[in-house]
Write a protein that binds this DNA or RNA. Structure first.
Lengths: 195, 195
DNA sequence: CTGTCGCTTTACTGCCTGTATAGTGAGTCG
DNA sequence: CGACTCACTATACAGGCAGTAAAGCGACAG
């Protein structure tokens, strides 16, 4: 089943087109203009085709997020940084995170904004944020082992998670246009909590 | 014109009712269920009455935000802290800010979420955020005068603004349930940027 | 060659926004 | 006291979007 057959290939292509169209539209336009019809037009298909691929508008957002996670490739970040010192691992993780926030900033802004207002979108994002939370927890533990932090572990974890969150990154404004510069700032904030 | 006359009083009361209903509904329900009809029902009036008071859904959000700003009473925070030392002023401003974020957390979450997705709401919030930015700028200047920070002033300002923003506060999760505890954490972060 | 299946076209229901219009009743003013 | 004002109601309407249903077409698969 390595090759897909012409039929499955074309349907996969239309699905790609739909998701890409949705991603672009979501990143560049208001929620008001993010209609199924607009997505269909941009993808060059009919509204009904969109409904065939993703059952609903919610399903479309779900597909967009799943695609985004696939592209991210953050899964192996934790094992990649295992051999580094705690401080180096911290810098690496923060930088990699900032790069990801930056790479899809407009799209993520829309998704996190919607999550604040739509329970369905929130529950979609919750899984990923939970995963990120665990990653941060293991990072905090490594850093805490090297020095005695000035706060509870719970406070440190909450602070680190918040400071490394997308919404905080996006709130950096013009600084966030340069992810490396932002990463230095965020790393400094994280270290100020764990040292 | 100190007394309002029965007529004007009742219309003001219905307006209050509408805005209160909108605030509660926005804080407790999804955007999907935040319809003009739902607001009208909760306020005990007709849809048409809502449209008479606030021209549109956007106007309703505008009114809710204006009301929120009135309640906040943050205007004189800057002059109130003028006589304090820079460090004390920082702690006071951060604490007061956190208390405000906490007092209307659900409502603010909805408004900031919408702002990420709706250009109209964004432009409504922009004014207030601009005002807050200036407040933070003057705070940063005071703190910078006392010690040489490790970053550009632009970086420090961006970092402080981000760290004291609502979205970051909200991202603190369970810690944000206790605004004083959160304030200590945020103050620490601010000081780590300015010292 | 025949059947499958994804895509299209068309049409429909239901919900929400926003507007228009006429009526009602309580407060206002001469 | 009587006439006027004006906020609110009831109702109906147009427009837009989500989601569903049904029938036809055409390329691919066996």
């Amino acid at each position: 089943m390595s090759t897909l057959g012409r039929r499955a290939a074309t349907t996969a292509a239309t699905r790609r087109g739909i998701i890409d169209a949705a991603r672009e539209l979501l990143a560049t336009h208001d929620w008001q203009h993010f209609t199924i019809e607009a997505v269909a037009n941009r993808a060059g298909v009919t509204r009904v085709t969109v409904y065939n691929q993703v059952r609903s508008k919610r399903g479309l957002l779900d597909a967009v997020l799943a695609d985004l996670v696939d592209r991210a490739g953050m899964d192996q970040l934790l094992t990649d940084t295992q051999h580094l010192s705690a401080g180096e691992a911290c810098a690496a993780i923060v930088q990699r995170t900032c790069l990801f926030w930056h790479s899809e900033r407009e799209l993520l802004r829309a998704l996190f904004g919607l999550a604040a207002v739509d329970h369905d979108v929130a529950s979609i994002l919750e899984q990923r944020e939970e995963w990120r939370g665990k990653q941060m927890q293991s990072l905090v533990r490594r850093l805490a082992a090297e020095s005695a932090p000035s706060f509870d572990e719970a406070d440190v974890l909450a602070g680190v998670t918040a400071v490394t969150s997308f919404v905080t990154y996006d709130a950096l404004g013009p600084i966030a246009d340069d992810p490396d510069r932002a990463a230095v700032l965020v790393t400094h904030l994280v270290r100020s909590l764990t040292d």
